[in-house]
């Protein structure tokens, strides 16, 4: 199963994102904050005529994380809604084969629900980030910030 992955850096880690899930890569302009949402929801931003919900990916994965204030984001669509997930840095796209995480190699309670598997890149293992799962973690309304 050879697929195209986008390599990005989130919360200090390299992750791979299946390029089929990425509509575009953008630099987000001003974000209008939305009170009373989950802390990981930064707010709303306009991408041309479209309104996207901006999500702090690092914080959505683990509330202890804080983003570094970067504006770069990957845009994805989940259930008809557009989201921009902030990433620290974007690398290039590579063709790789994703494999399931082997037994014993668990990425921890924060990462496990948002990871689909692992790819090998330059001999290093890189986690495959499931964007829809990240978005789903912000849908619970106001959560207690850790």
């Amino acid at each position: 199963m050879n697929a195209l992955f986008l390599l990005a850096r989130v919360a200090g880690q390299d992750v791979a994102i299946l390029s089929d899930h990425v509509e575009s890569v953008v630099d987000i302009g001003p974000v209008a904050p939305v009170p009373r949402t989950a802390p990981a929801v930064c707010g709303l931003a306009a991408l041309r005529s479209r309104v996207v919900t901006v999500i702090d990916t690092a914080q959505a994965i683990d509330p202890a994380n804080r983003s570094d204030g970067g504006r770069r984001a990957v845009v994805t669509q989940v259930d008809g809604h557009h989201y921009a997930l902030l990433v620290d840095m974007l690398d290039d796209a590579y063709r790789c084969v994703a494999r399931p995480l082997s037994a014993g190699l668990t990425p921890g309670p924060a990462w496990a629900p948002v990871v689909d598997g692992v790819i090998d890149h330059d001999g290093r293992p890189v986690l495959v980030l499931n964007l829809a799962a990240v978005v789903a973690r912000t849908a619970g309304g106001e959560q207690a910030a850790a």
Binding site: T37, L44, A46
Partner: peptide, 27 residues
């Protein structure tokens, strides 16, 4: 007005989102 993302609607405070002529999204 269009429906906002579930992450926003989950608050129960908003009816939807809109993009006025200013280009700044508004709820």
């Amino acid at each position: 007005v269009k429906p906002a993302a579930p992450s926003v609607m989950a608050t129960g405070l908003y009816a939807g989102q809109t993009l006025p002529d200013t280009g700044q999204p508004m709820l």
